[in-house]
């Protein structure tokens, strides 16, 4: 086995300097980059900054007025509905993350190592479809399947079993959230597993490792960053989802997303809704930071 030869880095000498552009040297990157920057600034960054700003504003006689009050923050952060929604959302998202990873790992393993290359590529293509197509409709379909008079209960009835209360609880909520997250998690892990250096696995096998040991000692550690990525992505999607809780549990109990939309709808309480939104973003940033930390700590330990 020849050693892996990394592509030689491109020496500086082979990067054209900016000055090859006639006229103003930076003309092209500016002409290309400025519209991009402007667009993202106006339609993405500015709204997020504004979201933070209006958490300090006031609503007077149904009108939003600039101010600097902490009232919105104290009212939301010390309110029981917020605490309940926060606890519930965290618990739901954490459950989805654990379930998605537990399911995605063996699924990705089977796709990456048990299918032929052609079937594997087909499976990846098929998984890309749900990631980009109508989650809301699929949630609605689950409602049809799991409802009191739905397909699942019709099938149960046909074989003489009693009807089950499938919709409206933790079970249906997880079904909905896994519909959203599981294909993404599996895709991330398949790409990572196929990318694992096969010589590593062979070497471990040659050293007499059993299959189970190869998986726990070689495969899992070498795709740790991908597992962290799959986990954080799943958490993010489940944490911020609105449609799943809305249709799978009828908003009972409400998640933070539902609390946010309800706060906007009822009485135009934009500042308070913004507090909920900013808090959610803060939590997500925290989760991502922890995820990065989890990845890097491992790498450092392995490097030493």
């Amino acid at each position: 086995m020849p050693p892996a030869s990394p592509k030689p880095p491109i020496p500086d000498a082979f990067r054209p300097s900016a000055s090859i552009y006639s006229g103003s040297p930076a003309a092209m990157p500016v002409a290309l980059g400025l519209p991009v920057l402007a667009w993202q600034a106006v339609f993405f960054l500015a709204p997020l900054v504004f979201l933070v700003v209006i958490t300090f504003w006031q609503v007077r006689s149904f009108r939003l007025e600039p101010a600097f009050v902490l009232d919105n923050w104290t009212r939301i952060l010390w309110s029981t509905p917020f605490h309940r929604a926060l606890g519930h959302t965290l618990q739901v998202a954490a459950t989805t993350t654990v379930l998605a990873l537990l399911l995605a790992l063996p699924l990705a393993y089977t796709i990456a190592f048990r299918l032929s290359v052609r079937v594997r590529d087909l499976a990846v293509s098929l998984l890309a479809v749900p990631v980009f197509s109508s989650y809301m409709l699929r949630i609605y379909a689950w409602q049809v399947v799991l409802g009191a008079d739905g397909i699942a209960n019709a099938v149960l009835g046909a074989v003489g079993l009693p009807k089950l209360q499938l919709l409206g609880g933790a079970f249906s909520l997880q079904v909905g959230l896994l519909t959203l997250t599981l294909p993404v998690a599996v895709l991330i892990l398949v790409f990572a597993m196929v990318g694992v250096d096969r010589t590593l696995i062979e070497a471990a096998e040659n050293l007499g490792c059993r299959r189970a040991q190869v998986i726990t000692r070689v495969l899992i550690p070498s795709i740790r960053p991908a597992i962290v990525l799959a986990g954080t992505t799943t958490f993010l999607l489940a944490f911020g989802d609105y449609v799943g809780p809305l249709f799978m549990t009828g908003s009972k109990p409400p998640t933070l997303s539902i609390l946010l939309v309800d706060t906007v709808k009822s009485g135009s309480q934009w500042p308070r809704a913004s507090v909920v939104g900013v808090s959610m973003l803060a939590i997500l940033v925290l989760v991502f930071a922890l995820g990065r930390l989890a990845g890097s700590v491992r790498i450092r330990r392995r490097a030493s």
Binding site: V36, P47, F50, L51, G240, Y242, S257
Partner: peptide
């Protein structure tokens, strides 16, 4: 930062993004 500003939007829950966008564009 430039690449980040283009890459990151899908990571923000659309509920929050939608609300923030409406708040800003209506302004």
């Amino acid at each position: 930062l430039f690449v980040f500003a283009v890459a990151i939007p899908p990571a923000v829950p659309t509920t929050i993004l939608g609300m923030a966008m409406l708040a800003f564009v209506s302004r």
